[in-house]
């Protein structure tokens, strides 16, 4: 399925085709450790187990401080 992902850090937007239907599948696809991000959908934080739908728009917030 296709998901639109916004990366908070640089405000870049990426359209991603993912096999599977959970946030964890998406993060695995992007090679992002779930410990390092918060995932936001419709202004709500969601967990790695959340089921996604086609064309969902997500934002990834970085957890790690930059110094």
């Amino acid at each position: 399925m296709k998901i639109q992902v916004t990366f908070e850090k640089d405000q870049s937007i990426k359209e991603v085709s993912v096999e599977g239907n959970t946030v964890l599948d998406l993060l695995n696809h992007l090679a992002i450790n779930p410990e390092t991000v918060l995932v936001v959908k419709n202004n709500e934080v969601i967990t790695e187990h959340e089921i996604l739908s086609e064309n969902d728009c997500l934002e990834l917030l970085s957890v790690i401080s930059g110094g």
Partner: peptide
Amino acid sequence: TEKETRLYTVLKGFKVDFTECPYA
């Protein structure tokens, strides 16, 4: 944890600048 702390700031609506220190 760092993740819990970031989540707390998000839920409380604190304005946090994420500019990285250039020396980090």
